[in-house]
Amino acid sequence: MDFAFLFAEWLGKPVWMWASFISLVITILAFDLGVLHRDNKEIEVSDSLKLSALYISLGLAFGAWVWWYLGAESGMNYLTGFVVEKTLALDNVFVIALIFSFFAVPRLYQHRVLFWGILGVIVLRAIMIGLGAALVTEFAWVLYLFAAFLIGTGLKMLFGEDKEPDLAKNPLINFMRRRFNVTNELHGERFFVRQENPKTGRAALFVTPLFMALVVIEVADVIFAVDSVPAIFAITTDPFIVYTSNIFAILGLRALYFALAAMIHRFEYLKPALAIVLIFIGSKIFMADLLGIEKFPPALSLGITLSIIAAGVVWSLVKTRKSEESA
């Protein structure tokens, strides 16, 4: 059998590298669902932290392989993208918790929704990153649009009013309720049920609130990707580094969710740090032009990013601890 096609390039890397990565992700997800969470059960904070540590270790180990095989610059770009995407994902936790609360989804079934949500994210991010790579390759000036967008987003996060989304008025939820048969209550872990339609008296297919929660979470991720995809392209334009760092950061979000949801209030001051990171990532494209260099040094970019995020985490933990002690 001729395996020459495995060494053909696709989006800048050999096909075997892409195939190996996808196979690794499928194996991880199969192990997670088929072994670790074969039966529905509530995930405790301690289990969430252990599983998160495993996912973070896998992501860092892959980054170490990228560093060894593709070189230090690719390794540093991967780690920077991984850290930025992981931090951006913290914003998702608040929204996901709000969605689960709105649909009254118990912790017992939240893992199922998040698992299928991750599968959707893997496909959607591939499409968005593929489109982004095509645009950047064809029109180099798109990077400057991404950079300006990141700076604007960061400034809005720093100085804009932070409002909690009102899901009761969400147009997507209202659209689904108008267009589909929707049950008023959950039916265990099922996304769809067949039952009698009170309007016609005939059996019909109904969607459950669990499925609606899944759809809203998927759409929320697309909205968040509008920030994260330009951010990673501002770090590197290598589609392989962009996609792998994105997916490894997201894979662990499901595991980390159950721990973060219980202590999200301790990261109150992380959002300003994240806003500064976005401004920095957007600005460094323009700074490279001003300094007359091809690109901002990856090592310096990684160091500054880690320092800003670490400062935000430490400051959040210190300030919220003082607030709890004085309460």
Rank of each mutant, 00 (worst) to 15 (best):
K271L: 08
E161C: 06
I96Y: 03
Y144F: 11
L210P: 02
V314F: 03
W315H: 06
T320C: 10
W16F: 06
L88N: 04
L135C: 07
L274E: 01
I118Q: 01
V95L: 12
L58S: 03
F82A: 05
F139L: 05
L214S: 09
V25Q: 00
L317V: 12
K41W: 13
L60P: 04
S46P: 05
R125D: 02
A133P: 02
S316G: 03
L29V: 15
S48H: 02
R194T: 08
F100H: 01
L114G: 00
F62P: 01
G154E: 03
T305Y: 01
W315R: 05
E161I: 13
K50R: 15
D2S: 12
V226I: 15
T27H: 04
F31E: 02
D2Q: 09
G160C: 01
A259K: 02
L278R: 00
K295V: 12
L114R: 01
F233D: 11
I43V: 07
R179Y: 15
I223S: 08
A140Y: 03
L167S: 02
K86S: 13
T236W: 13
A220L: 11
M128S: 01
I279S: 06
E324D: 13
V193C: 09
T237Y: 05
E138I: 05
I235F: 13
R194F: 12
R178A: 11
G160A: 05
F248K: 10
V229A: 07
V136E: 00
G152F: 09
M128P: 01
I247H: 14
G81Q: 05
V277H: 00
L143A: 02
V219P: 13
F159T: 03
L150E: 06
D238G: 11
F21Q: 09
A225Q: 10
T80P: 04
S323K: 15
D227P: 14
L158S: 06
Y78R: 10
S307I: 06
F206I: 09
V45F: 14
E185V: 11
A261H: 07
L274K: 00
V182I: 05
F192M: 08
H265Q: 08
D162M: 06
L33G: 02
S52G: 13
V121S: 00
L300Q: 14
G12E: 12
G160V: 05
G63N: 05
L251A: 06
L24S: 08
I173G: 01
D162C: 00
A203K: 15
K163F: 02
S228W: 13
N40Y: 14
K284E: 06
A104Y: 00
H265Y: 14
A97K: 11
P272N: 12
V113A: 15
A64Q: 12
G71M: 12
D47A: 10
A311I: 12
D32S: 08
W68G: 07
L291A: 15
